[in-house]
Design a protein around this nucleic acid. Structure first.
Lengths: 197, 197, 197, 197
DNA sequence: GCCTAAGCGAGACGGTACGTCAGGTCTTGCA
DNA sequence: TGCAAGACCTGACGTACCGTCTCGCTTAGGC
């Protein structure tokens, strides 16, 4: 007797997409507190159970929605500019991030995700693996290139560098600081690269 | 008719304290999502209306609860050690913060507050003024002293320094990163003070 | 110190009435299977919880709705005609019951209640006490009068007589028998009074 | 090409039996409200669709389940005792019915069926034809024999007699009356045969 | 020291969303 | 092609809290 196929669940792709689309739409329309499972299901034309069947929490849906968006946006992968001048390149990247944070249609969904992540370690792990890691990889590549070019100390902890670049930025953004602008991005890059002592 | 006295609110102090105590207790016992106004009122032996009368939101109650705790803890004010060696002093401070973050009974309430702040700019402003500012003031004092001693460049943006010290730390903590230890604190201080270029 | 009043629940009468009215209205409009707690609450302009707070089950609501209707209808109490001729009086009463059973607006609610009662002994007890007992009382009075007049045997078990009058009637009605008419009512009365041997 | 067989439904007998068995089992185990199509399908190891394909409603399944049970029990047909004494024979029959009603494993399924019947005229017709009619036939036979023997009036409406015997009994049983015992059965038979006037 | 208005505990209320359950339909392989 | 398995949309379930409201009670000023 042939091994019976374990009846793998025949998930309906159209529903999956409708749910993620609805989530993204709603994130742009209503304050996050109003983003309910019911509203997602209604907008997607889907039963609530279908959401509960495939996602563990609302945060997981939001993460997936953002993931789908970023994947369709990137295509193959992200790459940082490499002009040979590390300072200039990093400033460009951080300024871009700053601009994204300033645009609610971009930042609102991520802010929503952050709220879920902070309250849910499991989701945080998923976030790091799926969303953060690709970005970090791209920056790492650029930093290594700078290391080879002698623009960064050979023993520099590149992970730490990344955190020192993004930590303060994210911090100010999450806390609704008004002083999150290009000047700050520039000063941050300078500070990281030259130190203060 | 005599001029009516302006009827200044006769708030009951014992209820205020009971509410803040109950909030702090519950933050240590249940996951933040389970911290409801009703549970606070029940635990405090207080009517719900009494909470709604005096606080604008659950976040405001949480902020007040933490405020009350920190005030009773500090007494007059915080002061950083000043051994003359800035590096050593900052490492000590960041290691202490790291330790606090590692202790759930300490960090859970702040994490809860962060969730509220991220979703509510008004609360964020209150947080910066009431809770963050005193701490930052203390660090600023220490940094200025270091500037005078020539251990920090005279033109250093001290606010930026603070963000570069705390941003990465907070970031890792909020995202449940496992690599948040003394070594990281030390490397962070070294990175900020010496730069990587 | 005076004994503290035990804070008896301050139930809102207007809601109670709105719920019972809505229940009765719906029983006349939709098939019983569609009578949901949610539809009652919506029609009554009331939160679901208000129903769950004061009634144990949907059946209890239905019973109360019928009770309220019958109370407002009767006023003080029911009384059977007493023409001196028991046969004639009983036939009149059973024919009236037959007519009620034939009118859906009358019988649909009771049919609904029966469904609940059959599945719930507790509700059955309530039904007997609150709805059935008054009717039976009235018939009992008439039967006793007939006993005194010598139209019924002195040792007749009047409760049994009532069941023999109403049991077959109800039975046919519940089972949707088509042969439930005045002729049946008449024959039933004759049968009960004279027997078949 | 051979003439295509006209695709008569190839119903799987084993599934039919499994469904009826599962229904009967569950009726004895769980309160009727918990008897769902899903639970039947799961217990029978059958897809829900198979039930929907062959039965119109849950009530129809229940009816079939009881039908199957009674058929297997009886064999060819039921017959009442005929001792020559109608009173004695009827009392024996009604006492037996009373005993059945008192045994939940016997009466629970019928009670369930009653609930469905009361709400569904179509099912009621089926019930009368398939389950009730055979029993009534048997009683009719016995009553006719009594008529010939002069123990019943020649003009007695035997259908009415049956209803007068079973109506009160069923009534009390459905309404969970506690006073449903042998004494009641006996008094009922006496009442039907001799009347109360 | 009494009077009176406010704060207060309690908790009912109209709502919204939760997460679950079952209904009845549809789809996908297996037999 | 009948069937098991189970995903799917639908809609109701009973619960938890929301923020508002109404009750008496208590309690602190102002007379």
């Amino acid at each position: 007797m042939p091994p019976r196929t374990p009846a793998q669940p025949r998930r309906r792709e159209s529903s999956r997409i409708a749910i993620l689309d609805a989530t993204r739409d709603l994130l742009g329309e209503v304050p996050y507190a109003k983003l309910t499972i019911e509203s997602i299901a209604a907008r997607a034309g889907v039963g609530k159970q279908t959401i509960y069947r495939w996602w563990e929490s609302k945060g997981a849906v939001v993460l997936d929605a953002l993931l789908a968006a970023s994947e369709s946006a990137e295509g193959t992968g992200i790459e940082l500019p490499d002009s040979g001048d590390l300072t200039r390149d990093l400033k460009a990247v951080l300024r871009a991030t700053t601009a994204e944070f300033a645009d609610p249609s971009f930042s609102a969904p991520i802010r929503a995700l952050m709220i879920e992540i902070i309250a849910d370690p499991a989701l945080a792990a998923l976030y790091q693996e799926k969303l953060q890691q690709p970005t970090h990889q791209a920056i790492l590549t650029r930093l290594r290139s700078a290391q080879h070019a002698g623009q960064l100390r050979p023993d520099a902890d590149l992970t730490l560098v990344i955190d020192m670049l993004y930590g303060p930025l994210t911090q100010r953004w999450l806390l609704h600081s008004t002083t999150l602008d290009d000047a700050f991005a520039d000063a941050l890059v300078d500070g990281v690269l030259h130190g203060f002592a």
